[in-house]
């Protein structure tokens, strides 16, 4: 049970850290000062969620501490969604990805706030509010891009088409034992709510929902795209060059 629970924590922590790191890559490159602050704050929320989840996982015996879990595991040990490790692309891809993920996590964390595990419930209760805030920010941008200029519309639509094959992985089954014990929600049960949010925002953004297609998979089993290894190499370089260093 403890291994299963750690596995759940690591999946969700890896998701948050990988997307948090990707968003942090925008620091210094955002299209406006407000958006610069927004992207950095979004990253901070996600990295904060990751820290809480890693710390709890370490307490359950998954590793020495949160730093070891974040900085000393290789790409095959990461179990994040492939969607989140893809490069940022242009601003439309960054926003579309944040939107698709937050629309799922908003519901996931809300359900997980009722978890039988008190610590996970407490982390979820916080993360839920952050995910709702992220969802609003991303949705507002997506509407502005989709219903904006010809170019912003084209780029937003292209971003959705690019990311769509990676959305199926969010709904892959969670650990059945943990779901049965009411420790975490079953992702498939959150699909309808996700569809409603996505369809409503895309309609307002005058964007088309991409056609259903074959879905990419593998992140949860540690089989990643070529991009994760490169990202981790950058993210982990300082920690690996100076083992045990403290701020």
């Amino acid at each position: 049970m403890s291994d299963r629970f750690s596995g759940l924590l690591l999946r969700r922590a890896d998701d948050a850290l990988v997307l948090g790191h990707r968003l942090s890559e925008w620091t210094g490159h955002a299209p406006s000062l407000e958006e610069e602050l927004a992207l950095a704050n979004l990253a901070l929320d996600l990295i904060g969620q990751a820290r809480a989840l890693y710390a709890l996982a370490a307490e359950k015996g998954a590793g020495e501490d949160e730093d070891a879990l974040a900085y000393l595991r290789g790409d095959r040990e990461y179990t994040n969604l492939l969607l989140l490790e893809l490069p940022n692309g242009d601003f439309a891809v960054t926003i579309a990805r944040l939107f698709l993920y937050a629309a799922f996590m908003d519901n996931f964390w809300r359900a997980a706030a009722a978890s039988r595990d008190r610590d996970l419930a407490a982390i979820a209760a916080k993360a839920e509010k952050e995910a709702a805030y992220h969802l609003r920010h991303a949705a507002e941008w997506l509407i502005r891009l989709g219903d904006g200029t010809e170019e912003s519309h084209r780029r937003a639509q292209a971003a959705l088409e690019r990311l769509w094959p990676y959305t199926g992985e969010m709904f892959e089954p969670e650990d059945e034992v943990l779901v049965a014990a009411d420790v975490c929600p079953e992702p498939a049960g959150l699909r309808e709510a996700w569809n409603r949010t996505v369809d409503a925002v895309l309609a307002e953004a005058t964007l088309a929902r991409p056609a259903e297609c074959w879905m990419q998979s593998g992140g949860r089993a540690g089989r990643h795209t070529e991009h994760l290894g490169h990202m981790l190499a950058v993210m982990q370089s300082v920690a690996r060059a100076h083992p045990g260093a403290k701020w």
Binding site: L44, D45, G48, Q49, A52, K126, E130
Partner: peptide
């Protein structure tokens, strides 16, 4: 107790 998840 922590406030926001990422509060530095």
């Amino acid at each position: 107790t922590p406030t926001y998840s990422g509060c530095p």
